[in-house]
């Protein structure tokens, strides 16, 4: 299980809309919201999958920034 957290900046008027879409993504949880900032975690089976979901979030209409804060990938195997 790969666990990561993000701070997402949105256009203020779009914040509600963005957060309601985000939570429909698999493995995504909303933990807090203050003004136009959202705190979100993603739980996915792999880092690659995490990237896919995080990119989707970043490309949402109304999202200004998607900042990765923390990533734990101890369950992943490292090679190459």
């Amino acid at each position: 299980m790969v666990i990561s957290s993000y701070v997402i900046d949105t256009i203020p008027e779009k914040c509600e809309e963005v957060s309601s879409i985000l939570v429909t993504y698999p493995g995504v949880e909303l933990h807090g919201q203050e003004k136009n900032r959202l705190i979100v975690t993603i739980e996915a089976d792999s880092v690659d999958e995490t990237y896919v979901i995080a990119t989707k979030m970043a490309l949402l209409d109304g999202v200004l920034n998607n900042n990765l804060i923390y990533c734990n990938f101890e369950d992943e195997t490292l090679c190459d």
């Binding site: 792999s46 880092v47 690659d48 990765l68 990533c71 992943e76 195997t77 490292l78 190459d80």
Partner: peptide, 11 residues
């Protein structure tokens, strides 16, 4: 799939 080490370290 595996993670390239350099990008991990960059992260």
């Amino acid at each position: 799939m595996s993670i390239p080490l350099p990008s991990v370290l960059k992260g």
